[in-house]
């Protein structure tokens, strides 16, 4: 042990002073720092590029015609034409999707948190909800195609698109709701039980209302997410250039498929419409996104 007191050759410098960190270590530290900053810049560049090109190219056709007219009778080369039919389609499809997905998802989350109790079924459901978040959206479309259109014999419709989007929306909403339900203090449940309130009323009138703002936030984020889905819609709502306000019958348009269609046409007039479609879609998504975040923030300040 006596060796400890005698500094030996290749031991770190122990002169009288604090000393310095070796240049090599410092340089390495600086290089990593530079790389880390670079990584962040690498992510921001495409983001800004995407937002900038969508904005600058999209403003070209952001006019009244775009919002008031469909593409009915408008050729790829023609100026004018609009996305009215697509906007109507998207809004209807997303509304239908939410109407189907939200009750299922919220009930599933209630099951996982309030009833499942970590049992085998609950664990399986929880695991597959996670796995479901990874299902490629095109597979959801293929499933609805195989079940709804090919097996049950229904035709292309906005509703078929909603069914596909439902599969994509459920896991997101389940996760968000689950998180919120877990945040509800157990005291609240116990207080309710102590008053002799049955369990289902406790869940419906105590637990869910407490978690509601958080659930709504989660639903809005999920809506923003499915709104931009294209692939499943190609297989389920198909294409139309005309206005179809009935989501239950006949092909419908949607903003993403509108962009897909217009971008597939090499004429500049079509490309312009595609960019404007992209701008409108991003604005819609941002609206839901920011709305959700605003709601979350408002709720947070209230609860404190």
């Amino acid at each position: 042990m006596s060796t400890l007191t005698t500094p030996s050759g290749d031991r770190p410098a122990l002169g009288g002073s604090i000393g310095a960190v070796s240049a090599g270590r410092k340089i390495k530290d600086r290089i990593v720092q530079a790389l880390v900053y670079l990584a962040f810049a690498l992510a921001v560049v495409p983001l800004l590029s995407v937002l900038w090109t969508v904005l600058s190219n999209g403003l070209e056709r952001l006019d009244g015609t775009f919002f008031y007219y469909s593409m009915n009778g408008v050729g790829g080369r023609d100026e004018g034409g609009g996305a009215y039919h697509a906007i109507v389609g998207t809004l209807e499809q997303v509304a239908l999707t939410s109407a189907i997905a939200v009750p299922i998802a919220v009930l599933t989350a209630v099951y996982l948190v309030e009833y499942g109790g970590g049992g085998r079924l609950a664990r399986a459901v929880g695991f597959f909800v996670d796995v479901m978040t990874g299902i490629p959206s095109i597979v959801a479309g293929l499933f609805v195609l195989a079940l709804w259109l090919l097996t049950l014999g229904f035709g292309f419709s906005g509703f078929a698109g909603s069914l596909a989007l439902t599969i994509l929306m459920i896991p997101t909403v389940v996760r968000a709701t689950e998180e919120m339900l877990k945040l509800v203090p157990n005291d609240l449940r116990e207080a309710s039980y102590a008053l002799g309130v049955p369990r289902w009323r406790t869940v419906c009138f105590v637990v869910l209302p407490t978690a509601l703002p958080g659930i709504v936030t989660g639903v809005m984020l999920a809506v923003a997410r499915v709104m931009g889905e294209t692939a499943p819609l190609l297989l389920t709502i198909f294409f139309t250039k005309a206005i179809n306000t009935n989501p239950f019958e006949g092909p419908q348009a949607a903003l993403p498929t509108f962009i897909w269609e217009q971008a597939g046409d090499p004429n500049q007039a079509s490309i312009d419409r595609a960019w404007t479609g992209a701008l409108v879609l991003i604005l819609l998504i941002m609206l839901f996104n920011l709305g959700a975040r605003l709601l979350a923030r408002m709720f947070r300040t209230v609860s404190r």
């Binding site: 042990m1 400890l4 290749d10 031991r11 770190p12």
Partner: peptide, 23 residues
Amino acid sequence: GLKLNGVRRKSRLDDIVEESLKG
């Protein structure tokens, strides 16, 4: 901590680890 400060030789590391654990 030794590796951070550039002690790399295995025999040297072995010695210091033993000394320190004894200490």
